[in-house]
Amino acid sequence: PTIVLKVSPEELKALEKAGVEIEKIEKNEDGELYITLTPEALKKAGFE
């Protein structure tokens, strides 16, 4: 199962800087950012 999270541009930068593997980055028509994370990326980021 993949996880989709709504993030701010600042959060996205912080995640990328931390080396979190982001599978997909999407922006909706309201300009909101959503990222898709794999279970492996979540484990690496410390989420179980």
Results as ranks from 00 to 15, higher is better:
Ala18Gly: 08
Ala41Pro: 01
Phe47Lys: 04
Lys17Ser: 13
Pro39Gly: 07
Lys44Trp: 05
Ala45Tyr: 06
Glu16Met: 09
Glu29Lys: 12
Glu10Ser: 12
Asn28Arg: 12
Leu37Arg: 00
Ile22Trp: 08
Lys43Gly: 07
Thr2Ser: 12
Lys13Pro: 01
Leu5Val: 12
Glu32Gly: 10
Leu5Ala: 02
Glu23Val: 09
Gly46Cys: 10
Glu29Ala: 14
Lys44Pro: 05
Lys27Trp: 12
Lys6Cys: 08
Ala18Trp: 10
Tyr34Gly: 01
Gly31Glu: 05
Lys6Asn: 07
Glu32Ile: 10
Gly46Lys: 04
Thr2Val: 09
Leu37Tyr: 02
Glu11Phe: 15
Ile35Glu: 00
Val7Cys: 02
Gly46Asn: 06
Ile35Cys: 02
Tyr34Ile: 08
Glu32Asn: 10
Gly46Asp: 10
Ala41His: 01
Ile35Thr: 01
Glu11Thr: 15
Pro1His: 09
Lys44Asn: 15
Ala14Leu: 14
Ala45Val: 09
Ala45Gln: 03
Asp30Gln: 14
Lys27Asp: 06
Gly31Ser: 04
Thr2Phe: 14
Leu15Met: 10
Ile3Gln: 05
Pro39Ile: 12
Lys27Asn: 09
Lys24Val: 06
Glu16Tyr: 12
Lys24Trp: 10
Val7Gln: 01
Ile22Thr: 02
Glu21Pro: 08
Ala18Leu: 14
Val20Ser: 02
Gly31Leu: 03
Gly46Tyr: 05
Phe47Glu: 05
Thr38Gln: 07
Ser8Ile: 03
Lys43Gln: 10
Glu40Ala: 03
Lys24Pro: 01
Thr38Cys: 04
Pro1Lys: 12
Glu26Gln: 08
Ala18Gln: 10
Ile25Asp: 01
Glu16Lys: 12
Glu11Trp: 14
Glu21Leu: 06
Leu33Ile: 15
Glu40Gly: 02
Ala18His: 09
Val20Leu: 06
Leu33Asp: 01
Lys13Met: 11
Leu15Pro: 00
Leu42Arg: 02
Lys6Phe: 07
Thr36Ile: 07
Glu48Asn: 09
Glu16Ile: 14
Glu10Trp: 12
Val4Leu: 09
Ser8Pro: 02
Ser8Cys: 04
Ile35Leu: 06
Lys13Ala: 13
Phe47Pro: 01
Pro9Asn: 06
Lys44Thr: 14
Ile25Asn: 01
Ile3Gly: 02
Glu23Asp: 08
Glu29Asp: 13
Gly19Ser: 05
Pro1Phe: 10
Thr36Met: 05
Val7Glu: 00
Ala41Trp: 04
Leu5Ile: 14
Ile3Cys: 12
Val7Leu: 05
Leu5Thr: 03
Val20Gln: 01
Lys43Trp: 05
Lys13Glu: 11
Thr38Leu: 04
Ile35Asp: 00
Val20Arg: 00
Leu12Tyr: 05
Ile35His: 00
Glu16Val: 15
Val7Trp: 01
Ile22Gln: 00
Thr36Val: 07
Glu21Lys: 04
Glu16Asp: 07
Lys44Asp: 15
Pro1Ile: 11
Ala45Leu: 08
Glu21Ser: 05
Glu11His: 12
Val7Arg: 01
Lys24Gly: 07
Glu10Val: 09
Glu40Val: 02
Thr38Asn: 08
Asp30Gly: 10
Ser8Gln: 05
Pro39Leu: 15
Ile35Arg: 00
Ala14Phe: 12
Glu40Gln: 03
Gly46Glu: 12
Glu32Lys: 08
Leu5Gln: 03
Val20Cys: 04
Ile3Ala: 05
Glu23Ser: 09
Glu26Pro: 01
Ile3Thr: 12
Lys44Val: 15
Ala45Ile: 06
Glu32Trp: 12
Lys24Met: 10
Leu33Ala: 06
Glu48Cys: 09
Glu26Ser: 09
Glu48Ser: 10
Glu29Phe: 11
Thr36Trp: 14
Leu37Glu: 00
Lys13His: 14
Ile3Trp: 07
Glu16Ala: 07
Lys13Gly: 08
Lys17Thr: 15
Thr38Ile: 03
Glu11Val: 15
Lys24Tyr: 10
Ser8Gly: 07
Gly19Phe: 07
Leu37Trp: 01
Pro9Met: 10
Pro39Thr: 08
Glu48Thr: 11
Pro1Met: 12
Glu26Val: 11
Leu5Glu: 01
Glu40Thr: 03
Ile25Gln: 04
Glu21Met: 07
Lys24Asp: 04
Lys43Asp: 15
Ala45Lys: 02
Glu29Asn: 14
Lys27Phe: 15
Lys44Ser: 15
Lys13Arg: 12
Glu16Gln: 14
Thr2Gln: 09
Gly31Val: 01
Tyr34Met: 09
Lys13Thr: 11
Pro39Met: 08
Leu33Asn: 02
Glu29Gly: 11
Thr38Arg: 05
Val7Pro: 01
Val4Phe: 08
Leu12His: 03
Ile25Trp: 05
Val4Lys: 13
Pro9Asp: 11
Glu11Leu: 15
Asp30Cys: 15
Lys6Pro: 03
Leu37His: 00
Asp30Arg: 14
Glu21Gly: 04
Glu48Ala: 11
Glu10Gly: 10
Lys43Phe: 04
Glu29Trp: 13
Leu12Ala: 04
Glu48His: 09
Thr2Tyr: 14
Leu42Phe: 15
Gly31Ala: 03
Thr38Asp: 11
Pro1Leu: 12
Glu10Tyr: 08
Ala14Cys: 15
Ile25Glu: 03
Leu5Ser: 01
